[in-house]
Amino acid sequence: MSTFVPDANRLLQAAAEYLERELLPTLTGYHGFQTRVCINVLKIVARELEMRPEAQARERRRLEDILGKQGDVGALNRELATRLGAGDLPLDHVGVVEHLISTLQDALSINSPRWAKQVSD
């Protein structure tokens, strides 16, 4: 895309900053709350655009190691859940607990980075 068009992450951050710094201080009650929700949504989407590709690649590699086969993350996650639920793969199988913790940590880093930091400390 043209260098004159900012990337999506930068646009989302600019919108969130405007809402947070300029608009939010002028609002109270319902509209203040809804604006805060919108700010949070914009920030989550910006973090997801920035962080998700690497997080998903790490998740896929862990799943492939655990299951011993390649595939897309969705299919591998469904297989992991099915095998864990059926008892075909024990929870103490090498890498399973670490995978679940790492996947949750990555998701929290996108959705709620302050909470993720508290959990990891």
Rank of each mutant, 00 (worst) to 15 (best):
I110K: 04
L91K: 09
P113N: 08
V119R: 10
Q105D: 14
R61P: 01
D92K: 11
V5T: 11
L67F: 07
Q56P: 04
H31Y: 14
P25D: 05
R62Y: 02
V37L: 11
F33L: 14
A16T: 03
L80Y: 08
S120F: 07
H31T: 14
A116H: 01
K43E: 10
L67R: 01
L108T: 01
G68L: 01
T82S: 12
V96Q: 05
P6Q: 11
A57P: 02
E48R: 14
P113Y: 03
T82R: 15
V37E: 13
E64Q: 09
A116M: 02
Q105K: 15
V37D: 12
R78V: 04
T35R: 04
L104R: 14
Q70I: 06
H93F: 08
G85I: 03
W115Y: 13
G32S: 04
A81I: 04
A46R: 00
W115L: 14
L100H: 05
L84D: 00
A86H: 06
K117Y: 12
T3C: 03
P113V: 06
Q56F: 13
R10N: 13
A8T: 11
F4P: 00
A81P: 01
T35A: 05
P6L: 08
A16F: 03
G74H: 10
R60M: 07
L49Q: 06
A107S: 15
L49W: 03
D121C: 07
V73A: 02
A75D: 12
